[in-house]
Design a protein around this nucleic acid. Structure first.
Lengths: 183, 183
DNA sequence: ACGGCCATGTAACTGGTTACATGATTAC
DNA sequence: GTAATCATGTAACCAGTTACATGGCCGT
């Protein structure tokens, strides 16, 4: 049950509607905790029922009303508990590595094509991450930004983003290595 | 539905019992497609029902009987189809990055502790991967091993293992970077 | 005697995906 | 006029986790 904590973590930075959250998950958190809009709505209902978030309805002209959620003190306590618990092992699920594992003489061209496709996908993801990165830095150098200390807003998401960037870079490097062998 | 393909991929290299498969998943495939023994037994039942694998019962003295599965021609066709389909996006679920994303001034020490714990876990995983690596290489240099071409047995799993190794190395590098900032 | 390995399974539950439904607004 | 965006939800299904059950063999 950790979508719960991913939602609390995201709301702890800034209050948001369900729709807004699902957009944020798409761009940033998606990398290490993907969730569909439906999952997020369901989770918000449960969190509200359990008193970990509180909603207020915002009426909008020309847009549908929205319910904006913020973390309650109980929610903050729950998040702090989660942080103190042992990490569950990281889970990676990757089609490509299943394909690679079944490599043989006859399917080698098809496997190579799948590797090439993955390389393209990683390049695209890397490009959006790097855009996001320069948006966060907003002209400052990375050193200046990082020197602000652990309390500064946006530092956590920035560090997570950096992990996403190096993951995709490493993917690209690995695909080149593999394609040099066959393909 | 891709546990199906992970199981077919693993059986396509070598026939195995359910128990044997779950052991193999623990050491190698676990890295990019984790599955519990229960999931594997269920999946094997389904695959058998659909004619993608065939079981034969092996009677053993001093050990319980076991059912050994091998991929049928229909199973091989299913696997080939899967390889030709587009990759589904890679899914990563990582507690640690949820924790990092909720970093603030008050929880920084707890977050740092979680990062440290993750670093230890990555080091342990890396050590088992490297042991597995030298077992596969069996004295040969990597160049010699890789030069054997795409048909050689064990090449696919070796390349997947290499991806696992670089993932853990990158984890360790990233945790050092983060702990240098605070912690 | 006790724990670990081999070997397979059932049952109940939680989490995640896919499909469908609604309806106004804005941009091309 | 057509697609995208904002905004929320229901329902059915599939995948994954946790707990429990069985039972002999092997090593210490």
């Amino acid at each position: 049950m950790a979508l719960k904590h991913a939602v609390l973590a995201s709301l702890s930075g800034e209050e948001s509607s369900g729709y807004g959250l699902s957009k944020r998950f798409d761009v940033s958190v998606a990398n290490f905790w993907p969730a569909s809009a439906q999952q997020i709505y369901r989770e918000l209902d449960r969190l509200e029922r359990d008193g970990l978030v509180k909603a207020r309805t915002v009426r909008q002209a020309k847009r549908p009303d929205k319910r904006v959620f913020r973390v309650t003190p109980a929610g903050r306590a729950e998040l702090d508990d989660f942080i103190r618990k042992d990490n569950k092992p990281t889970v990676i699920r990757d089609d490509l590595l299943v394909k690679i594992a079944s490599l043989n003489e006859t399917n080698a061209p098809d496997v190579a094509a799948a590797v090439g496709q993955a390389a393209e996908a990683s390049k695209a993801k890397l490009a959006t991450y790097e855009q996001l990165q320069s948006a966060i830095l907003a002209g400052r150098s990375e050193e200046d930004f990082l020197a602000t200390g652990p309390g500064s807003p946006g530092l956590g998401p920035y560090l997570a983003l950096k992990r996403g960037i190096s993951f995709e870079e490493e993917n690209i490097r690995w695909t080149r290595e593999v394609l040099a062998l066959f393909g």
